[in-house]
Design a protein around this nucleic acid. Structure first.
Lengths: 185, 185
DNA sequence: GCTAAACTGGAATCCGTATTCCAGTTGAGT
DNA sequence: ACTCAACTGGAATACGGATTCCAGTTTAGC
C-alpha cells in the first residue's frame, strides 16, 4: 500500500541514516550535509533527498539513537524493583553516553521537532522510573517528581557529556546519596 | 600612552558590548551581528569593528558577565567559613543564572578562546571553594576534588538553564545532601 | 572655524552550507 | 533485451550571516 520504492533508494536511505547517527555520536563532528555525504559515500543531493531534507534526517538519526534507550527504561521498569530499576537505568545511561561521546553535546543546540519529541519521550520514561521509586519509598518524598525528573535528566546528560567513567561514578554516588530518603529529614 | 581613540568610538564600543551582553542573557536571542546592531542602534560595520570581529565582541561580553561571578567566589572564600561559602556561592550562582536566563544555553555551543578561558576561571574558583570545604570536613572526602568540581560546575549550569527557582532549590537540596560527609560511609 | 584623520552606516562582497536541478544511470516490469 | 520511471551525483543556485569597503560625517587639535 505504500509507495513502491526502489531497492537502491531504500539502501541509500539506510546508509545516510547510519552516517548521520555515526557523526552525531562523535565528539566534534561537523554534521553538515557534505560530511554525511562523504561518510556515507553518497552524493549530497541523495543525502538530502533520503528523508526530505537535512532536518528530517537528523531527527530520524536522533530517534534511532534514543529509541532503544527509552525502550530500555520501560524494560527495567517492568522487570526490576523500582529503586533498582532507576539505579540500573542511570548507570546504563552513563555507559550509553560514554559510548556515544558527542551525542548530548550535539543534541542540545538542535531545535528540531523530532529531536524535541524524542527527548521528551526519554524524560517521560525517566519520570516514570522516578515516580515508581518514590512511591516505593526508595526516594526522598519531600521533592516533587517533576522537579526530580528534570533535575536528573538535565544533570545526567550534562555529566556524561565528556564521558569520563570516574566522573559518571562520582555523579551517581552523589546523586543517590542526595536522593536517599533516610537523609530527607 | 595607549592609542588616542575618539570619544564616539569609545561610546559605541560600550554600546555594542552592552547590546551583546543583553542578547547573551536573553532566552532565545539570535546573537547575530545584525541583531546586536539593531539592539544597540549602531550599524553592522561599527559593531564588528568595535572589538575587531564578532568573536572578540562575544568573548568580551562573556567576560563582562562572568568576571563579577568569579570575583564573588573569591570574596566568599575570603569572608565565610568554607562550607558556608560554597553553599552561598551556589545559591547566588542559581540566582545569577535565573537573572540571565539565556546565558548558559548560549554559552555552550560557543567555542571561543576568551569564553573558554572565562569558563575555566569560573571552574577554578568553584574548585577552590570545594577544596576548602572538603579540607574543612564539610564535604565527603571519598571523591576527588577534581571530580566534584566538574560535577558541580556542569550540573549547576545545566539545572539553572531554564531558571525555575523550585528546580534550583531542589537541586541544591539534593546536591548538598549527596555531598554531606556524614553520609559517605 | 578649519583641516586632517578617525570613525560611521549600510551597501556590496564573501563564505559556508542547504537545496534544487538536470543529464546520465540504474532498477523493475514485460 | 527493452523501456521508462525512479533515482543518483554533483554542479548550480539560494540563502543567511560575517566582513569589507567607501562616501559621507564627526571629532580633536590648532
Amino acid at each position: 500500500m505504500s509507495s513502491p520504492r526502489r531497492a537502491d533508494a531504500v539502501r541509500n536511505r539506510a546508509l545516510a541514516l547510519e552516517a548521520a547517527t555515526a557523526l552525531l555520536s562523535e565528539p566534534g563532528a561537523t554534521l553538515t550535509v557534505e560530511a554525511i555525504a562523504a561518510r556515507s559515500g553518497l552524493g549530497a543531493g541523495t543525502v538530502v533527498r533520503a528523508f526530505g531534507g537535512k532536518d528530517a534526517l537528523i531527527d530520524a538519526a536522533v530517534a534511532a539513537l534514543l529509541a532503544p534507550v527509552v525502550a530500555r527504561a520501560g524494560e527495567l521498569a517492568a522487570s526490576k524493583a523500582p529503586g533498582e530499576a532507576l539505579r540500573a537505568f542511570l548507570a546504563e545511561l552513563m555507559d550509553f553516553q560514554a559510548a556515544h561521546h558527542g551525542l548530548s553535546a550535539g543534541l542540545d543546540g538542535l531545535d528540531l521537532p523530532g529531536t524535541t519529541a524524542r527527548r521528551a519521550d526519554l524524560e517521560a520514561a525517566v519520570g516514570d522510573l522516578i515516580a515508581r521509586a518514590q512511591r516505593d519509598g526508595e526516594l526522598r518524598d519531600d521533592l516533587p517528581v517533576g522537579a526530580l525528573t528534570v533535575l536528573i535528566g538535565r544533570t545526567a546528560f550534562a555529566v556524561a557529556r565528556d564521558g569520563s567513567p570516574e566522573l559518571s561514578a562520582a555523579y551517581l554516588t552523589v546523586l543517590f546519596a542526595g536522593l536517599s530518603p533516610v537523609h530527607g529529614r
